[in-house]
């Protein structure tokens, strides 16, 4: 038995005119398959209609505010990363451009000898400083513990500053994890 157009009428959302409605009813009385389809659709519609809409747990807006704060923090971190990468890229490009523009006019032997000369000047200054310290300590032995305390204190302070700086940089640049959710 053909189930068309009855099946289409049942499954369509379009309202039927009175004549077609009557034809469909007559068909449903004789066709078990279409009657089963009609009943099933009726039951599905009924189940949908009776089912109340689920609601979120209380405090949805509060949780959303927390999530928005996380989103903003992640957004800020992404911006910082992009800014840093952008600045480094621009600086790198400028250095490369300057290098390639001046490559013909660089006297390599002279430049390398300048580097060695600067290093030896720096080393001689350090040596002079150490000699001065030694003569001072020989003349005034009381200065030795003061110099040791001062030197260690300065080194500790310097180390603490470096650690603080690195940890704050890590915090700022910590890359956000995807799919962070707050419940």
């Amino acid at each position: 038995m053909s189930h068309q157009p009855y099946e289409s009428w049942l499954l369509s959302d379009e309202p039927l005119d009175e004549e077609n409605q009557q034809t469909l009813q007559t068909h449903l009385e004789t066709c078990e398959s279409c009657r089963a389809l009609s009943n099933a659709l009726h039951n599905v519609n009924g189940t949908f209609a009776q089912n109340p809409a689920p609601t979120p747990k209380p405090g949805f807006t509060k949780r959303w505010q927390t999530r928005l704060a996380i989103y903003r923090q992640e957004h800020q971190q992404r911006k910082m990363w992009l800014l840093t990468i952008g600045l480094f890229s621009v600086a790198g490009l400028i250095i490369l451009a300057l290098f390639f523009l001046n490559i013909g006019s660089i006297n390599w032997i002279y430049e390398i000898s300048q580097v060695f000369a600067n290093v030896s000047v720096f080393a001689s200054k350090i040596s002079w400083l150490i000699n001065t310290m030694e003569s001072l300590v020989r003349a005034f032995p009381i200065l030795l513990p003061i110099l040791i305390v001062f030197g260690l204190g300065s080194l500790s302070l310097f180390a603490a500053l470096i650690v603080t700086w690195i940890s704050s940089m890590l915090k700022i640049y910590k890359f956000p994890k995807e799919g962070v959710s707050v419940r």
Partner: peptide
């Protein structure tokens, strides 16, 4: 999942 998706939709 619905809570997560709803929150993300509002974001």
């Amino acid at each position: 999942d619905a809570e997560d998706a709803a929150q993300e939709s509002f974001i």
